[in-house]
Design a protein around this nucleic acid. Structure first.
Lengths: 117, 117
DNA sequence: TAATCAATTCGACAGTTATCGAAATGTCGA
DNA sequence: TCGACATTTCGATAACTGTCGAATTGATTA
């Protein structure tokens, strides 16, 4: 497996949500990979659209996958730095990390430049 | 349609220039998958940053991959709708399809909503 | 026509990953 | 402590994909 702690550390460092931070190549690739799986994206959508942190049970009910697979996807999203997992007793609650999607979106949009006439 | 004409048409269409189009799930996944490979992203960057359509030879010189692999990546980017390939005799020229990255970026940014206070 | 060059396709291989069931870990309530 | 429940980890499998060399297609030029 990957150097998990390293990736988490890198993911967690920029906590400023005001302005989109510039992403490294590695981080950008990690984000894109995390988003490129349809079910994982759907899970992220559910988390984003819930106005409060989402419980795993709700996530599980919304997606046709096993608990093991859900756990796997949660870890991927967390490792990529897209979500935060808050633990409360037996339960885990998932919420979007602010600013990350903004940074990625900004980076992608910035690729388009004035074209050659 | 002629690639140039198509680009001009898109450029002068106010709706396209002003507002990014909404993507289907399948299309969004295809785009994210195409972008999630580091070398492919690098290739797209090269295409985007060249102020005029990029020749395959230039692309090849910029990336440490074989011709076969380059051809594969070009096809992936083309299939995803991210680039256009114009053929001119022996040579192929690559250019960014306008608006696609904007639409994707807008879709990603829109996922972030006012959080629960 | 033959030779040459650009790019694709083919076939194969290696690494990655999504998925699951089963077992394990951890937490709470009785 | 025991049992019920939430989640993770393990082990295995199937599918996908990035990569290359070799063969092929297609276009230009000698």
């Amino acid at each position: 497996m990957n150097p998990l702690a390293e990736r988490i550390a890198e993911a967690i460092t920029p906590a400023n949500a005001a302005r989109p931070t510039r992403l490294t190549r590695a981080r950008r690739t990690a984000l894109l990979k995390a988003l490129a799986d349809p079910r994982r994206f759907e899970l992220l959508e559910k988390i984003a659209k819930a106005n409060c942190p989402l419980g795993c049970a709700q996530a599980r009910a919304a997606l046709p996958i096993s608990a093991a697979t859900l756990s796997h996807h949660i870890k991927e999203l967390q490792t990529a730095g897209l979500i935060e997992v808050r633990r409360e007793g037996k339960f885990h609650f998932l919420s979007l990390r602010p600013g990350v999607l903004q940074s990625l979106a900004a980076g992608l949009a910035a690729l388009e430049q004035p074209s050659c006439a």
